[in-house]
Design a protein around this nucleic acid. Sequence first.
DNA 1: TCAAATATGATGCAATTGCATAGAAAGCAG
DNA 2: CTGCTTTCTATGCAATTGCATCATATTTGA
Lengths: 155, 155
Amino acid sequence: MQEPSETVTNAWVRLIRAGRAVAGQIEAELKAAGFPSLAWYDVLLSLKKAPEGRRTPREIEQEVLFEQYNLSRLLDRMEAEGLVRRIPYPGDRRRQFVEITLEGRDLQRRMWVVYGPAITRYIGCRFAEGEAEQLAVLLGRLAPSADAECSGNPG
Amino acid sequence: MQEPSETVTNAWVRLIRAGRAVAGQIEAELKAAGFPSLAWYDVLLSLKKAPEGRRTPREIEQEVLFEQYNLSRLLDRMEAEGLVRRIPYPGDRRRQFVEITLEGRDLQRRMWVVYGPAITRYIGCRFAEGEAEQLAVLLGRLAPSADAECSGNPG
DNA sequence: TCAAATATGATGCAATTGCATAGAAAGCAG
DNA sequence: CTGCTTTCTATGCAATTGCATCATATTTGA
């Protein structure tokens, strides 16, 4: 296992910087509009897309890549705001379902009015459609599930 | 200003997820090896690359995209560990220089031994060199300085 | 069937981050 | 000069995150 090439390192640095820059600007717009952060949006959207608007915390975690303990407390806050509701999971009392409420659905919709155009402005505007496609494909290879080609483990 | 296409949204979602996933794994390896986080590394490297190993906090901020107050306190911690030293800025007493110490340089080097191969493993291994180049170029367009093509401002 | 291992979610506590604002030094307009 | 604005860094306090661990429920395997 060896050092990365200049090019690879550069891609990595830009990946992080670009993510930070764009996320920072979008978060700022959401906040300016009086909305909660992207983390809340991610949870709301994840639930909204799920059948019957419900998922277990584990499923949400894996989709949005949050830490278990962070999500647990984020759900506390969201539940306190009435955006989400925890309900028993039939057949396994360790688990639970988290279900989006009407208010939650509504908030998601209202946030999208700010969020969508922001994505257009910070991403869409900078690429031709084919380029965006290319970028998406390349980034898809970095997904946690995607298998690497070379072997070797940490440590 | 309008909604983003599916493709653009997808690129954005993957950008964030990929960054989180890779950063998470790299952070885990660093921690497992007894090292501090990537944020510390970024500051050390930024200083190391600078002439005479020194930069003002503002310069570091802009390079690594940290918040001013976070960097201020990160530097406190790093200074307490002897990795960095604050020295007066000649001709402007508002500013200061942050200078990397020998210990700081050494830590950067030792962290790279873990960090470099991790970049290879999580990024390099997943792309041919030309693809990595492509990815880097596309991501470069998202840099905060890069100008967007369409107009329209938030709000 | 029962103890050990595993899976899921919650929580106490320390560390970090975000927010608003302070404090100090330049820069600027008249 | 003098007062007003801007720039740069620090900080009090609240909110969030990370870490370790707990509590409970299920699964596994002898």
